[in-house]
Design a protein around this nucleic acid. Structure first.
Ligand SMILES: [Mn+2]
Ligand SMILES: [Mn+2]
Ligand SMILES: [Zn+2]
Ligand SMILES: [Zn+2]
Lengths: 153, 153
DNA sequence: GGGTATCTGCAACTCGGTTGCAGATACCCG
DNA sequence: CGGGTATCTGCAACCGAGTTGCAGATACCC
């Protein structure tokens, strides 16, 4: 609708869609509807989303299954998103935020498999065996989320 | 070969095989060769093992694929082993040791996917959102193991 | 607007894990 | 020690998440 006259850099007045498109072009790729929709969704999600949840959330705007996988892979490869396997061994994706890049705290629900990002203080880096290279510290809490703890056992 | 005269409790002179069999019977199940072999292997492994690695390690004593899955599931259900998904979304299994039951530190290699158990100090329990139930704290270090850091990038 | 490298959609595939069921066997009991 | 039975094993078929190859579409440079 509204023509995007902006080219680059922070734009306080831009919509979330415009912002997602700009981030994608800055990463050196075409701002296709598929990429824009997925990145916008990830950036507004409160928890890390699975491929299936993303498909659901896109509703009638849904992409082909494979295209969604490729979009997600590309977002991860460029660093615009993170990927990790949840307790049920499916990948979950979250938008990379500038504040979070080396340490992070997650709560993983053993009931529903969801992953919640918590703003807890990252633990101090420990000593590693000789030759090991550390790139990321994650504090991983496991148990049951409020919803799953409330219902059955 | 040697008849197992022991019934229960710690037995300093017993072999690793006898010890595994006793642990299984104490958990209320039959000490079948399949269970004994797998538990013995897990208890002697320095890292958490994948289903495939276990199959390989058993060599000519290998079980049916499905039986191995069921043995592993049973070990996890009784608490004799732990299961977690590695960075490549495959499950890895490790013997439960008495010293480790609520907090644990792992190093996950992004190169080969292996999981190393480290004896690092467990972080202090953080505060959770209302209604969340905590069962396990795990400090999760990610990067490259000595072997993978040594070779290609 | 047109040309082209990039992207999308479809079909077919791989891989880790699960389910159902019929035949084997560890262990309880005498 | 055997025999009976609940438990365990092996096979075949299945499932869902993720990947690959390729032909047709399209964002973006000009
Ligand atoms: Mn996160
Ligand atoms: Mn461990
Ligand atoms: Zn839950
Ligand atoms: Zn490695």
């Amino acid at each position: 609708m509204k023509p995007a006259l902006i080219r680059n850099g922070e734009q306080p007045g831009e919509s979330e869609t415009e912002r997602a498109a700009r981030l994608i072009r800055c990463a050196g790729a075409r701002a296709t509807p598929a990429r824009v929709r997925v990145l916008r969704l990830l950036r507004s999600a409160p928890t890390a989303l699975s491929h299936h949840e993303i498909e659901q959330s896109l509703g009638d705007l849904a992409l082909d299954r494979v295209t969604l996988y490729r979009v997600l892979d590309w977002l991860v490869a460029t660093g615009l998103a993170h990927r990790n396997a949840d307790t049920r061994r499916t990948f979950r994706f979250s938008a990379a935020s500038s504040s979070e890049h080396s340490a992070h705290t997650h709560f993983r629900c053993d009931g529903c498999g969801r992953v919640f990002c918590l703003d807890a203080a990252p633990p101090p880096p420990p000593k590693l065996p000789e030759g090991f290279l550390l790139s990321r510290i994650e504090l991983d809490l496991r148990g049951r989320c409020a919803q799953c703890a409330g219902s059955a056992q």
